[in-house]
Simulated scan of single mutants.
Amino acid sequence: MTHERRFQGIPMSKSMRGLCREEDYVFLGMSEKNTEETEEGAFKDDSGGQREERVRRQLEREQQEKERLREIEESKKEKEQQWRTHVAERASSQERTLPDRLARLRRFREFQRKVLVEESGTAGGAAAISQLLTRM
C-alpha cells in the first residue's frame, strides 16, 4: 500500500487511476530499486583502473568532437571559397559578354533605323523615325 501513498502525487484522472493497477505501481517501484542498486554497485565496483578508463574514453570523445568541429569548419571555408570563385567567374564572363551584346544591340538599332528610313522614303521623316526608335 505504500505505492498508493508514493504515487498519489502523480496527476491523473479518477478513471485513469482505476485503470492503473497495483502491478503497474509495483513495476515502477522495482525499476527505481534496480537503478538505485546499479548506482550503488557502480560506486562499489569503481576501482582506479575503471575510473582511468572512463576518463580516457571521455578525453577520446572530446578529441573526436573537436576533430569533427574542425572538419566542419574546414568544409564551410572550402564551400565559401568555391562560391567566391564561382561568383568571380560569373562576373568576369558577364563583363566579357556585355560589350558584345551592346555592339549587337547598336547594330540592330541601326538596321531598324535604316529600314524605317527606306520605308518612309523621305529625309524629313528621319526626325520622326528617331523619335519612334527612342520610344521603342
Results as ranks from 00 to 15, higher is better:
Gln8His: 12
Asp100Asn: 14
Ile10Phe: 07
Lys76Phe: 03
Glu80Phe: 03
Arg56Met: 07
Arg57Phe: 07
Gly124Ser: 05
Val55Thr: 05
Arg104Tyr: 05
Arg56Phe: 07
Arg61Trp: 04
Gly125Val: 00
Arg68Pro: 00
Leu98Ser: 00
Ala88Cys: 02
Glu62Arg: 15
Arg106Asp: 13
Lys79Arg: 13
Ser13Trp: 00
Ile10Ala: 02
Leu133Phe: 02
Lys44Phe: 05
Lys33Trp: 07
Thr85His: 12
Ala88His: 04
Gly18Cys: 08
Leu132His: 12
Lys44Ser: 04
Gly125Leu: 11
Glu36Ile: 10
Ala127Val: 15
Arg61Glu: 03
Thr134Ser: 09
Phe43Arg: 14
Arg68Gly: 01
Glu74Leu: 04
Gly41Met: 11
Lys79Ile: 02
Asp46Lys: 07
Arg84Gly: 00
Gln81Glu: 08
Arg57Glu: 11
Phe43Lys: 06
Leu69Val: 05
Ala88Asn: 03
Arg90Trp: 04
Lys79Met: 02
Ala91Thr: 14
Ser47Gln: 14
Glu62Phe: 00
Val26Lys: 14
Ile10Tyr: 11
Arg5Met: 14
Ser93Val: 06
Val117Leu: 13
Cys20Gly: 00
Trp83Gly: 02
Glu62Ala: 10
Lys77Asp: 06
Arg96Leu: 07
Glu74Cys: 05
Glu40Trp: 08
Glu60Trp: 06
Arg106His: 13
Leu105Phe: 09
Arg61Met: 08
Arg6Ala: 06
Ala127Lys: 14
Gln82Leu: 14
Glu22Phe: 09
Arg21Phe: 05
Lys114Ala: 03
Thr97Asn: 09
Ser15His: 12
Thr97Leu: 09
Gly29Pro: 00
Arg109Tyr: 04
Lys33Gly: 05
Arg101Pro: 02
Arg113Cys: 02
Gln50Ala: 06
Ile129Trp: 00
Gly18Lys: 09
Pro11Ala: 01
Ala123Thr: 15
Val117Met: 15
Phe7Ala: 00
Glu110Met: 10
Asp46Ala: 14
Lys66His: 04
Arg101Tyr: 05
Ala91Asn: 07
Ala103Ile: 07
Phe43Met: 13
Arg96Val: 03
Ser130Ala: 06
Arg135Asn: 13
Glu71Tyr: 03
Ile10Asp: 00
Ala91Ser: 10
Glu36Lys: 09
Ser92Ala: 09
Glu74Met: 13
Cys20Tyr: 09
Val55Lys: 08
Arg5Gly: 14
Glu60Pro: 01
Gly9Ile: 03
Ser31Phe: 10
Glu23Lys: 08
Asp45Phe: 06
Ser92Pro: 01
Ser75Cys: 12
Asp24Val: 13
Ala123Lys: 10
Thr38Asn: 14
Gln131Gly: 04
